[in-house]
Amino acid sequence: MAMPDFLTTPQGRRIAYHQTAGQGPGVMFLGGFKSDMTGTKAVHLQNWAEAKGRAFLRFDYSGHGQSDGDFLDGCIGDWAADAQAVIAALTQGPQVLVGSSMGGWMALLAARAMPERVAGLVGIAAAPDFTEDLMWAGFTEAERAAVMAGRLEQPSEYSDEPYVITKKLIEDGRNHLVLRNPLRLPFPVRLLQGTADVDVPPAVALRLMEHAEAPDLQLLLVKGADHRFSTPQCLAMMTAAIEDILGQI
């Protein structure tokens, strides 16, 4: 596998990325919480972009994958800043942002911070505000006390290592919520959501669709698809959504 290139952000964090040259608007993949750019969806999109001659970029947030930093030191604001630094430094013109799970929140924050650089958005089991609405809201009083004492460990379906949820993650997340204030998305938006997703339930996608102010927003519910959304059929839906957006531009 090719070695990544690296970008040092204005905050001094060293971010690993892979970039494919091609025609614009470019497509950029934003991964999920404790995920990285070597996942099925990210690699599939790079292969699709290369076949189409489309500019494409995938990267790892600080503390994720091949980027520098400790995951436990990170938080929503840091990872959002990483994504926005990558857009600003490495891409040209408006981009189609493809956000998976937490990456959907990152894409929405980028759209709010730099709307002139977003041509469209595809959310795959997008998880805006998940630290508050899925984590904190679902914790018991004992779990909340553990978080406020510093950290809480929970088992992960995706790794042998537990999820470690820090006080910093929860408190910083509250500074970056997008479903409490107006959310204007003046570009095509496609949301893809599996009905069997137990990590980010379909209610999240429905809430986002209802909340956003968007002239062209569509939600596709896929019966039986889980949070990974990585079957061949799901991957085909993802690229079809991107091509739909590119066709609107």
Rank of each mutant, 00 (worst) to 15 (best):
E141V: 07
D226V: 03
Q23V: 13
A21M: 11
S35T: 06
A214W: 04
Q92P: 15
F6E: 10
L183C: 13
A110K: 04
F6N: 13
G12D: 09
F33W: 12
G22Y: 05
D244S: 12
L45V: 10
G53C: 12
F229V: 01
G103Q: 08
V198S: 09
A55N: 07
I245P: 12
A49E: 06
G39S: 10
A107E: 03
Q46S: 12
L134H: 04
T38N: 15
D73W: 07
G53L: 11
L179P: 14
K167W: 08
G65T: 07
L97M: 08
S230L: 12
L108F: 00
P232H: 14
Q46M: 15
Q193T: 05
S67W: 11
M102W: 00
P215L: 12
P4S: 07
D73R: 08
A127L: 01
F33N: 14
Q193Y: 07
G26W: 02
A126E: 13
K34I: 13
R184P: 04
E116S: 14
V164Y: 00
L208M: 15
L7P: 00
Q95A: 03
L121S: 02
L177Y: 03
G77V: 03
E50W: 14
L169C: 01
D82I: 12
D244M: 05
V27D: 00
C234I: 01
G63L: 08
E143S: 02
K52Q: 13
E141Y: 05
T91L: 03
R228W: 10
D78M: 13
K41C: 06
L108V: 02
T166Q: 03
A88D: 13
Q23M: 12
Y163R: 10
E143N: 03
L152S: 03
P201G: 09
W79A: 05
V204D: 04
A49V: 09
Y158S: 07
Y158M: 10
